[in-house]
Design a protein around this nucleic acid. Structure first.
Length: 891
RNA sequence: GGGAGCAUAGCUCAGCUGGUUCAGAGCAUCUGCCUUACAAGCAGAGGGUCCGCGGUUCGAACCCGUGUGCUCCCA
């Protein structure tokens, strides 16, 4: 027989089962006659390693997938990663810089070679982490958003949507990332509150002839405007005031002179300006502010773009050309101050947009980009959720957010000035004519057809830009099954729609909403329940550190997953993160919960050791004997199985784990195993042993989705098995017997109370007592008396309607318990306990009595409730009587 | 500025449809145990004005209003 180590050692066990599962191809899925349960991994991007947020995510998915597999579903979990266009390109550029290579010195194909090198390295790290965590993914289905077919699918969708008029190209004010030098979508901008400064700058005013005008009301020179961005004054093309503002009514047809560069710009009048804000005069810089841009359109203003793509000042600025925008700001302030243009400075609370990926301040910029019209796609996506076709968990906490975004969605800027990604399938001739087609050949044909045979030899150049990564990942639930590149294939027909999407709430717009849009757009011919990409969305919370801070690279408070697995084992990590993870709420990650997982491993391990010790003690000739323990545990097990079933249906995974944990630790280890434990040198009946192994097996099955490795290991250690736990089917829930459950509760209560009395009276566990129970219903102890005697070391026990008084008395339920012990009893402690109980019961009695004496309660409350209260009153009365009698005995 | 959510034991949180499953769990704390599965353990115990105020109701941690404090999303 194999020897068991003192404590559970996860490392070798986890390695062994990972290899075994993989060899057996248990997690490979092909369509068959079973119902599918499909989950697509939200693609972690290839820029780094898995953080704790991913760990939570992957664990939740694995739990759902493993349980589905154990319930007879054909479970298919597709792993993959996305190319994270902007973030990866930034990393690759950084890597090149370290090697002394400038991106601009490379051709596009050369750069992409380096990018793929990066992707191979970091994508590989992520996959090995997913595997170490025990994720039961189908490794034959690994998908990357830049795979050939995937790439083609993205092209196809672009061309299709362009053909439908949903994709268009145009010059708009967009969010510009000067570091990555690309456009961003609205969602990629994060706003932060900060303390800025408002500068009041005086512009002089002239009439049409160029003669200076003074304010007739105040005699002041010029006009004062307030701005946060003095470095943009060179891009000013007007000063705007409210037409109803009397302070400025003398400025009709006047001109303002931009300081430092002395450009003359018109004064315009528009009610857009709030006279109460600042000085009531607004400088208008259409190239660098969205509101100014709109104002400029309305008033036909010139647009002067004073910034280059990299955030330095352009030739158009005339001064400080080539200086960074923030450096230029300082110099301009100095220049303005020196020349007396600055009237005052003021502290000002403001909000700035930062690039989510590079962290730099985003610059509003007018730029020609490709856009996707969102309104027509948003409407059905909103409807699907509002109609309940897709359910968001937990509760509908995020429903309002989802609804608001979709109702107010703006067109999506999908082009990025990058190389790493799907290159936009648009081709231009030298005159700027454009054709959109899936590839160059098709583009040429289309061009010839559109622009005539004469031009068929024209040189076509493909758009330099690539598409936003989310423009590929929104196809994920379909294209991992080649649903776009090869529609109607047997995989997509079987696996789509997927069952549940598990993801962080932070990408509800980036990904979840857009996946729903794409799913509905490309499955229009199907009924809605077949068109949606998933039926349920489960949002996990954010993982924070112990102090409640977000985990981030800057703070360095995110632990390294592989180190955690080395220290605790993957099962303990999974346990730790799930036990502290209420659905949808943020969780404070603390190694203490991993310790709890590790301790739990040991508890299971030691239970195994105990049961294996019994194996040697089986005596087949032994009669079945006392069956209460097994009867009770079987009922308890079924009760919990039903509970877990319900919790899973509500996606309350943390609750379910707590329930299973307590069933194993408390009910199975602390109660059941102790109850059936044979005495020293005593045999165990085959019946009890076999049932114990069967119960243990079921417990392991319940726990397996959470802690796959140790459960598989113990399952095989318990006895010879033909199949593996990860594919063993769960047994259906059976009825539980409420009589056994009630008797079990009474037994536990009596054991606890008697143990407490022993501790308080300093009776050692080895000291025997005899027990006299006075009860009106002696029969209720029939099933439990032998276990009770064993657990409280009371070889002698009398149960009758009158009892011989002992030296310790206590009241359990309505019954009086008298303990006879050779040792002197602590009367004071007993008295104190009894008096405390009495006070509680009396208070309880009074409150119930008061309730029942209230006529309106008796009239209005449901009859069951009133009946229950009457029973409570009677019980309390009986208890009070028993306690009082015991107290009287003590005096 | 608009919207959403949260406040229960020292900490992290459960608490469903208002009524013994109503004040609960885990961790932490305290006491006693080297009891042959487990000291990473066992057996016990203590600990709460359910954020403040008002209302609805026979009855409120739970429903409504309001104040305070915190978090998140959007502009």
């Amino acid at each position: 027989m194999e020897e068991f180590s003192k404590n559970y050692e996860p490392a070798s066990v986890e390695e062994k089962w990972n290899r075994h599962w993989k060899e057996k191809k248990y997690f490979k899925s092909v369509p068959d006659s079973r119902r599918p349960f499909t989950v697509v991994i939200p693609p972690p991007n290839v820029t780094g390693v898995l953080h704790m947020g991913h760990t939570l995510n992957e664990t939740v998915q694995d739990i759902l997938v493993r349980r589905a597999r154990m319930k007879g579903f054909n479970a298919c979990w597709v792993p993959g990663s996305d190319h994270a266009s902007i973030a990866t390109e930034a990393k690759v550029v950084g890597m090149l810089k370290e090697r002394g290579i400038d991106k601009n010195s490379l051709s596009r194909p050369e750069f992409l070679k380096y990018a793929y090198e990066w992707k191979e390295k970091y994508g590989g790290i992520i996959y090995s982490q997913v595997e170490k965590l025990g994720c039961s993914v189908d490794w034959d289905r690994v998908t990357f958003t830049m795979d050939d077919d995937y790439y083609k699918a993205v092209m196809k969708v672009f061309v299709d949507l362009h053909g439908k008029g949903l994709i268009y190209r145009g010059a708009r004010m967009i969010n510009w990332d000067p570091s990555a030098q690309t456009a961003l979508s609205d969602e990629e901008v994060e706003y932060k509150d900060l303390q800025g400064k408002l500068y009041y700058i005086r512009y002089s005013i002239t009439d049409e002839a160029g003669k200076e005008i003074l304010n007739p009301l105040t005699g002041e020179k010029g006009i004062v405007i307030a701005t946060q961005r003095p470095e943009t004054i060179m891009g000013d093309t007007a000063v705007c005031v409210n037409p109803n503002d009397e302070r400025y009514s003398h400025l009709k047809n006047a001109k303002a002179i931009v300081p430092l560069i002395n450009r003359s710009i018109p004064i315009i009048f528009d009610e857009y300006v709030d006279p109460a804000f600042g000085t009531g005069a607004l400088k208008v810089t259409p190239a660098h502010d969205i509101n100014d841009y709109n104002l400029g359109l309305k008033h036909n203003l010139e647009v002067v773009d004073t910034l280059n793509a990299d955030g330095t000042l352009s030739e158009a600025a005339q001064i400080y050309v080539g200086e960074d925008r923030f450096a230029a700001r300082k110099k301009i302030i100095a220049g303005l101050t020196e020349k007396g243009f600055i009237v005052k400075e003021e502290e000002y609370a403001t909000r700035l947009g930062y690039s989510q990926r590079t962290g730099v301040v985003v610059e509003p910029r007018i730029s020609t980009q490709w856009f996707l019209k969102m309104k027509p796609l948003a409407e059905p996506a909103l409807k699907a959720v509002l109609d309940g076709e897709i359910t968001i968990h937990p509760g509908d906490k995020f429903l309002a957010t989802y609804k608001y975004w979709l109702e107010n969605v703006k067109d999506w800027c999908i082009s990025r000035q990058l190389w790493w990604g799907q290159q936009i399938p648009a081709w231009y001739d030298d005159k700027g004519n454009v054709v959109v087609a899936e590839n160059e050949e098709a583009a040429k044909k289309l061009y010839a057809a559109q622009y005539g045979e004469n031009n068929s030899n024209a040189v076509l150049t493909q758009d330099e830009d690539v598409l936003d990564t989310w423009f590929s990942s929104w196809l994920w639930p379909m294209e991992v099954f080649k649903g776009i590149s090869s529609p109607g294939n047997s995989d997509i027909a079987y696996y789509y729609p997927t069952s549940v999407l598990v993801t962080g709430q932070d990408i509800i717009f980036f990904w979840v909403a857009r996946m729903i849009m794409a799913g509905l757009e490309y499955n229009k011919e199907k009924p809605i329940e077949k068109a949606i990409p998933f039926k349920d969305v489960y949002f996990t919370g954010m993982v924070r550190d112990k102090q409640g801070r977000k985990m981030s690279k800057q703070l360095g408070n995110s632990p390294d997953l592989l180190k955690l697995i080395d220290a605790y084992g993957a099962d303990a990590v999974r346990f730790g993160i799930m036990i502290s993870s209420p659905a949808g709420n943020d969780l404070l990650f603390d190694n203490a919960s991993l310790d709890q997982g590790k301790f739990f491993n040991n508890k299971l391990w030691n239970a195994l050791k105990l049961v294996k010790m019994w194996e040697k003690k089986i005596d087949a000739s032994l009669p079945v004997g006392d069956q209460f323990a097994t009867q009770w545990f079987e009922s308890r097990l079924n009760e919990v199985k039903a509970e877990v079933e319900k919790l899973f249906s509500e996606f309350r995974l943390s609750e379910a784990l707590k329930t299973i944990y307590s069933l194993i630790w408390d009910d199975f280890c602390s109660w059941y195993l102790e109850w059936v434990k044979p005495g020293f040198d005593q045999p165990i009946s085959a019946d009890v042993y076999n049932k114990t192994v069967a119960y243990f097996t079921e417990l392991l099955q319940l726990l397996h989705p959470y802690m796959p490795f140790i459960t598989e290991e113990i399952y095989h250690s318990l006895e010879e098995r033909k199949e593996d736990m990860c594919v063993k089917q769960l047994t259906p829930v059976a009825d539980s017997n409420s009589v056994y459950l009630g008797e079990g509760e009474l037994l536990k209560q009596a054991i606890t109370a008697l143990r407490d009395a022993r501790v308080k009276n300093r009776i050692k566990p080895k000291d025997e007592i005899s027990l006299h129970i006075e009860t009106g219903n002696p029969d209720k102890y029939n099933n439990i008396r032998s276990i009770l005697g064993k657990q409280v070391n009371a070889p002698v026990m009398h149960i009758a309607d009158t009892a011989e008084k002992g030296n310790i008395s206590l009241v359990i339920g309505k019954d009086k318990f008298y303990v006879h012990s050779a040792l002197p009893a602590d009367h004071a402690a007993q008295k104190e306990q009894l008096e405390k109980d009495l006070a509680y019961q009396k208070g309880f009695f009074t409150s119930i009595a008061k309730k029942l004496s209230n006529e309106r309660f008796v009239q209005n409350a449901k009859s069951e409730v009133v009946e229950l209260e009457r029973k409570k009153l009677a019980d309390a009365e009986a208890k009070i009587k028993a306690i009082e009698e015991s107290l009287a005995r003590l005096d």
